[in-house]
């Protein structure tokens, strides 16, 4: 990763709501081809979720993957708005698999009939990590509607993924997903979908 013409977009001190070491920079070690491949991967992932192909979705995670979502809290001024310990999700691949098995059972009542979701992924910022993995920060908007209702939920989230390259057709596996929903008082009876 070159640092010669690095253009820092923010002060050296990262915003407290950012993952450590994720200060934005235009010098990211990612060429256009790799950027496009990362985008295609995340679009494919969204498609699997929206099409409810949960087993295939799960296969995009590496065996040691974590899936984590800190709670938002409303705090004053410059204090971090992320709970240090509170989590909406605190999952491993093994517990994600349990959630998927549940969704595939007949007894996931909150998803009977299923939610209609549409995941919109944008503002991709990718950079190469020292170990060759790719850190991707993106904005995610998820629309969710159920049954005959006219109301819906919109979840906006700041998502940080770490992707490792593989030789498979998907090219990547997710080894870490970390996201924060932009709401501290959540809407919707339950969060029975993945972001």
């Amino acid at each position: 990763m070159t640092t010669d013409h690095a253009i820092a977009l923010a002060d050296a001190g990262a915003h407290p709501d950012q993952l450590p070491g994720s200060a934005p920079s235009l010098s990211d070690g990612i060429d256009a081809e790799l950027q496009r491949a990362v985008e295609r991967f995340l679009y494919l992932e969204s498609e699997l979720l929206d099409d409810r192909r949960f087993e295939e979705w799960l296969s995009l995670f590496s065996e040691d993957a974590t899936y984590e979502a800190p709670l938002r809290v409303t705090r004053d001024r410059q204090a971090s708005q992320l709970s240090e310990r509170g989590r909406l999700f605190s999952d491993t691949k093994a517990t994600l698999e349990v959630r998927v098995r549940r969704l595939l059972s007949e007894y996931a009542w909150a998803e009977q009939p299923p939610s209609r979701t549409r995941h919109f992924v944008s503002n991709l910022r990718a950079r190469l990590l020292d170990d060759g993995a790719i850190a991707v920060r993106s904005n995610v908007l998820v629309y969710r509607n159920r049954a005959e209702r006219t109301d819906f939920e919109l979840y906006s989230a700041d998502r940080h993924d770490e992707l490792v390259m593989t030789s498979g057709t998907a090219r990547f596996r997710i080894r870490r997903r970390w996201f924060v929903v932009d709401q501290s008082n959540m809407s919707g009876d339950s969060l029975s979908i993945f972001l």
Partner: peptide
């Protein structure tokens, strides 16, 4: 706490079913 987040909280598997019924 990990067990709690899996079962309860808005994304908890038990919580989801309860609120859908309620």
């Amino acid at each position: 706490y990990r067990a709690y987040t899996l079962a309860f909280g808005q994304a908890g598997m038990f919580e989801q079913d309860d609120f859908d019924n309620w």
